[in-house]
Simulated scan of single mutants.
Amino acid sequence: MTPEDRFPGPEPHHSGRHPHQDLDVLPYGSYYEPNPPADYPGSPGEPQDRPTGTDATYSGYGGARYLEQHWPVTGHSTPTQSIFQAPGPSAAMQREDPPTIELGPPISEDDLRPAPQLPPVGEPGPVGPLYVVGDVHGYLDELLAALHQQGLVDAEGHWSAGRARVWFLGDFTDRGPDGIGVIDLVMQLAAEAAAAGGYCRALMGNHELLFLGAHRYGDEPVQSTAGTASFRAAWLLNGGQQHDLDRLQGHHISWLKRLPAIALEDDHLLLHSDTTAYLEFGDSIAAVNDAVHNLLSDEGADEWWDAFRRFTKRFAFRGPGGPMAAGELLATYGGHRVVHGHSPIPYLTGEATADTGEPPYVPGPYIYADELAVAMDGGVTMEGRLLVARLPVD
């Protein structure tokens, strides 16, 4: 059964069979699960009424084994309702898992600011609506369809949203069929949006670090917790596509290396990864972004690898300690809610570990951690959805 069968309506058509490799792993297939920090719940030295070292909010690369140990799975029925209709009393929407949020309405004509109405260049104008885009992973056709459905691009794939603002949350390449095509599209939309008085911007994901590392360092050995590894080996293991590397050009590299790692927009803290590792790079948004840019400009393979390892950690906002972790980031960098990609929603809800044989049900963004976090990776690589949503989602 295809996603079109599960989700009737204006669904993106799929550009190829989606592989079921959806969580990042280290070379040789081992999962990186570091010991949690001493001040996290469940760590050694914490009160003994908590299971020692089993806190589900702290994990490196995850994987089905870790999820099965720490995240119980309940049964799910197969919904038949279109995700573009109002939610009904289906069994899937009544399960104990925290609910996902339906995608917001497409951009309306009132939100669009046609060019003739724009103020002169250099003068401030009205601010358009804010959208975020989850992990794309090379699925260009799905991305174009999702952007078009929200009114952000026209039928030819050109910016049509006037003063609207769009943030991509990273992970443009790997696993899917056309990562370079995705990068080219985002760069194109950035120029077209600026000309229309809006903007289209992007964050750096862990796969951008991996892709750039594979290009720059190739098979050069790096020190990994799994033993001696290389960027190229890790990139191939995590869905690297040789045709993307073959088409990578200098302007792609320059653009990718300048992407910020973190941003604050309309009181939303935008990140790629659901991890607190950002705190290890600085105590302000500017400091984090400067640290990452300096690393990519000056440091060697081992330093790049360490940054990739840190930004590939996941699940910090899940479980009993999740609100505390999200609150720590918000207290440091500002905002009232974290919005992230990286960890597919079916893993956060537990549905990915339910052996139903059906594609996961992802109606929209997933609000969790006492409503302090919003997940935007709809699991396009596992036959889920490529999510584009207007903020705020509630």
Rank of each mutant, 00 (worst) to 15 (best):
Q85T: 09
R390E: 01
L210A: 07
L189W: 15
A145H: 07
V153N: 03
R50G: 04
H70P: 04
H148I: 00
E192Y: 12
D244R: 08
T275W: 14
M382I: 02
P129K: 09
S43I: 06
A91T: 12
R385Y: 02
D274K: 03
L210N: 06
A155H: 13
Q21L: 14
E102P: 14
P346C: 10
D110H: 12
A261C: 10
F317Q: 01
F168V: 03
P359F: 13
M324C: 01
P37Y: 10
I345Y: 09
R6K: 08
P12H: 03
V388F: 08
Y40E: 01
V339S: 01
H293P: 04
T349P: 04
D244L: 02
S77T: 13
R258A: 14
G53C: 11
T225S: 06
R390K: 07
T275C: 15
Y28D: 02
S30W: 15
E383K: 14
A195N: 05
A373W: 10
D219V: 11
V121S: 13
P51N: 04
P98L: 13
G213A: 07
Y368L: 01
P89M: 09
E96Q: 10
I180T: 00
P114L: 09
E328S: 00
V25H: 12
I183S: 04
H272R: 03
A325H: 14
V222I: 13
T276P: 05
H14Q: 05
Q94N: 13
P8V: 11
M376P: 00
Q21G: 07
G29W: 14
D283W: 15
H252L: 06
L143K: 04
D39W: 15
G157F: 11
A286P: 08
A233C: 05
F211T: 05
G53S: 07
M93I: 10
P116M: 05
H20Q: 11
S284Y: 11
D244C: 12
T381W: 02
T353R: 15
T225G: 07
S59N: 12
M324P: 01
A291Q: 10
D184G: 10
D244N: 12
A91C: 12
G63N: 02
L329W: 10
R232C: 03
T52C: 13
H158P: 04
P129A: 05
Y278A: 08
P116L: 11
A352T: 01
D290W: 15
A331S: 12
A214L: 11
D171K: 06
Y361G: 04
L143C: 06
V288M: 08
H70K: 10
T353V: 11
L144G: 00
T74I: 15
T381F: 05
P34Y: 08
S273T: 06
I253Q: 03
L271M: 12
Y368W: 09
G125V: 06
V153H: 07
I285C: 02
E383N: 14
